[in-house]
Every structure is written in C-alpha cells, then in structure tokens.
Simulated scan of single mutants.
Amino acid sequence: MKHLQDVPLAKAYLLLNHGPSTLVTSEHEGVANVMAAAWVMPLDFDPPKLMLVLDRNTWSRHLVEGSGAFVIQLPSRRQAELTVDVGSCNGGELNKFARYDIATARARCVEAPIIEGCLAYLECRVIDEPHNQQRYDLFIAEVVAAYADERAFSNGRWHFPDDQLRTIHYQAGGAFFATGEAFQVAKG
C-alpha cells in the first residue's frame, strides 16, 4: 500500500504510545516517590480497574509492592518538563519531591502524595496478581477515587480551554505532543 514504511519491531510500541503521559506517586513506610509512566491503560468499568507496567528495577515498584497502592496523575502541558525530570532519575537515589520542588497534597483514599496542578487523579489499590507482576511487570489495580480539574474535564468529557490545560503524550527522547481539539460525531 502507498505511503507505508516498516517500523522496527523494537519500536512498534511507539505506534500506540500516544495515550496521556502519567505521573505515578507511591509511598511506603513514610518514603514517597514519583515517576513518569506512559504504559497505563483502563481495564474495566465497574468496579473501575486499570493496568500499569512497573519495571521491577524502579524504586516505585518497591514502594507499590510494599503499600499495595499508588496514584495515577495526568500532568498538563505546563508540567512536561517535570514529567521528563522525574522520569529521568532514580527515586532510590534522591528525593525527587525536594529536588524538583514539587508541591504535593495527600491523596483522599490511599496513603500517597498527589502532585498539585495535575489535570486528573486516579487513586488505586493493587489487585494482587503475583504471576503478572513477576513475569510481565504488569500491575492490575482498582480505582478507588477519581477526580479532575473541572476546567479541563467535566460532564464526562475532556475539553481544553487553553494550550496549558491539555494532557500531554510522550513519544520518546523528550518529545511530546499535546492533546488536540475535541470533536463529536453524530450517531447515524
């Protein structure tokens, strides 16, 4: 077919990796961390569940396994630099909250910080699936609380009043794009 080019299989994930970038916060025994994660997806509606790929070599993995909880946050375009920063260093080696002067509050239902200024928050409790966690680094979690900035999400829909209040989507190598304009198609 015209205009198609092969994509190396090792880079095939980039074809799907344009969902919103997320920040994951976790805490265990008074130690907290934040990391960037692009591989988060919804799994079920009722009760709401999601999946998160959490590499076994990350500090966040240690905290999530200890606490059984985490918070997914959707950063805005104004938080793109922060997203790259927290995704480029190891929380086991430094306190990212102090290093990047991150303003936080407490999550509503789980023991973890939330990052102020994000567009949406999903508080999650891990559904223990040792096989998936050990073999695939895949965590399944139930969403126990969800809330969003009403300027960008209301009545069950995303709407972006200005460029700074858009979700961001990580591609690779520090490259992002912002969510585009919303549109609706009438049912036929």
Rank of each mutant, 00 (worst) to 15 (best):
H3I: 08
H3V: 09
D6A: 14
V7R: 05
L14T: 11
N17W: 08
H18Q: 11
G19A: 14
A38E: 09
A38C: 07
V40T: 12
L43F: 11
K49W: 05
K49H: 14
V53R: 11
L54W: 08
L54M: 12
D55Y: 15
R56K: 15
N57I: 11
W59R: 07
R61F: 05
H62N: 11
V64Y: 10
E65R: 13
G68F: 03
A69G: 02
Q73H: 14
P75F: 01
R78K: 13
R78H: 14
E81P: 00
S88Y: 08
G92C: 11
L94S: 04
K96I: 05
Y100K: 04
A103F: 06
T104A: 05
R106D: 15
A107N: 10
R108H: 14
C109P: 01
C109T: 15
P113D: 06
P113G: 04
G117P: 02
L119S: 00
Y121S: 10
L122K: 02
C124T: 07
H131R: 13
Q133H: 10
Y136M: 12
A145K: 04
A145P: 00
A145E: 15
A146H: 04
E150N: 09
L165N: 09
H169C: 15
Q171K: 04
A178E: 01
A186L: 12
